[in-house]
Design a binder for these strands. Structure first.
Lengths: 293, 293
DNA sequence: AAATCAATTTGCATATTTGCAAGGTGTGAT
DNA sequence: ATCACACCTTGCAAATATGCAAATTGATTT
């Protein structure tokens, strides 16, 4: 018997959904879906009723769960003993991320990681420049792109939609359309930035409302923070001093990827950080979580 | 944690070797090798000392084994409950095998299988003809060949060497060479059979010793059984009424394969029979067992 | 000392699992 | 009634595991 099938069964039972189980085990929800079906086929038993509200244990499933829990507890105890004290992963992991992710997301998460693994040293390289992962200039890269490079392993962290952002003090609104935006001071783009879909649309429809321009998203965000006007920003640019007022449907969605070199995928400290970040991204409401990062 | 890694560790600990663990779990010994190494890397622990005599548990391995045994026992209990009574695989499995395998190997093994799974009906089709697995003329085919067909899934069952066989009453010998064979009555080949490597060598070096000929291996085996002379036979032709006197190095080694159609690999009753036969072949001393079927 | 044997280790190809993306479904909010 | 959302299911491509065959190693036998 494939012991991991029971592991997946247990996670579904504990979480009540494929998505929840996927988060717990750090795999894709479609993987959990297939493992459960394989398990049921192997046993010739239905373990869950598929309800619109989620997966509900059948009678056979309830019986299996009692033993699965014991086995699960035994594995937990075993892992605590063998990976808690005896196993102290150490070493350096270098991670690079764009400015905003580096400033507003990673610090909290990396401090959580530090608490879990005190002997792993994380080096954070801020910026969006093309570092060479083959030469170990960074071990992990977080990048926003529509097309991750093919020579690297890519894991999707989040979808990035565009939003309309204002200063934190901006009064509550129920959304914007092109007409209501026309009456707002707007931060526009210049230089190469003007080619982005969101800003091309802005130029076409809202050129007269633009009161300031910048060629850098961080600068646009800063201007919005200080109340110079509303800024169109991808959601990974948000921070606690900005208020997300609406979704900008005219912005082209992109994706945040975690990239790493294939040779590092089995390095334990890298694996641990990758798993940790995937979980943090999937649970953070600020980004359109995929729920199964 | 990948729970199957513990399963593999437990099997090695129980059997004392990669080969033994492989037989128990029905996988290749190299798979067990890799799983153990992955497990040790994951835990950053050495679980076994690699000695020439085999794998010996380290202190950490002994500690892990205590908990692994409990988990293993829990899985065994779970499997008995969920696959012993509730799960009764049923249906028909058609298997085809060459005459000698069908007469002298399969009956015992299929009766063992019947005891384990009383509601699976096995249909045995004797012969070497090309049945169409795609049209379900047979579900499983056992065939001796050097090159299994590429559209089928092939699992190696055994290497087939050639041997020199005599009647069961033949006096003990310490082996043969070309000179000592010259003084023995030999069974030769005719027709297409004469093209086989073993028989070509026989014609070149021992033509004068040939006292009878046949174009069929079963017929040659029968002649040897009744003492007409010694026969050169591939080892899968042996039976309890024949005595293997020596290995024939001049015979071209071939292999016994278990073949099945890709669509059937997930059908439970087929999987069960495939696993059962692989184990039986790997444990039978009459064939040059690969030790890891 | 050389040959044989059994077990381990490894490169390469194949098989299988998994992730991604998208479609489908049902519920709840508007 | 329509839309948005969350979850489930599936096709295809990518990633990973595994099997096969052979090389390596050390012990045993000749």
């Amino acid at each position: 018997m494939d012991w991991n099938l029971l592991h997946s069964f247990l996670a579904i039972a504990r979480n009540g959904s494929l998505n929840g189980a996927a988060r717990e085990l750090g795999v894709n929800h479609s993987t959990i879906f297939r493992r459960l079906n394989l398990f049921e086929d192997t046993l010739s038993l239905r373990l869950f009723d598929r309800l619109p509200q989620g997966y509900k244990l059948t009678q056979a499933g309830e019986e299996l769960l009692r033993q699965a829990e014991q086995i699960g507890d035994a594995f937990d105890a075993l892992e605590r003993q063998f990976t808690g004290q005896d196993f102290r992963p150490r070493g350096v992991v270098r991670i690079t991320a764009p400015n905003n992710i580096a400033y507003h997301y990673l610090p909290a998460w990396l401090s959580q990681f530090k608490a879990l693994y005190p002997e792993i040293k994380v080096e954070l390289i801020v910026g969006n420049q093309d570092l060479n992962l083959t030469r170990r200039e960074a071990d992990i890269a977080i990048r926003a792109t529509a097309n991750p490079p093919e020579h690297l392993i890519a894991r999707k962290l989040a979808d990035i939609n565009w939003g309309i952002y204002g200063a934190i003090e901006f009064p509550p609104v129920t959304g914007f359309d092109v007409n209501s935006l026309r009456h707002q001071p707007l931060i526009g783009a210049e230089g190469a930035m003007a080619n982005l879909t969101a800003f091309r649309w802005q130029e076409q429809h809202l050129k007269d409302a633009i009161v300031a321009r910048a060629n850098d998203l961080n600068a646009m965000a800063a201007m919005a923070e200080y109340g110079m006007g509303l800024a169109f920003l991808p959601d990974d640019q948000q921070n606690p001093r900005l208020k997300r007022l609406d979704t900008l449907k005219q912005g082209k969605q992109s994706h945040l990827w975690l990239l790493l070199h294939p040779d590092l995928r089995k390095v334990e400290r890298v694996k641990l950080l990758v798993s940790h970040l995937q979980r943090c991204f999937s649970e953070d409401p600020r980004l359109s979580s995929r729920g199964d990062g």
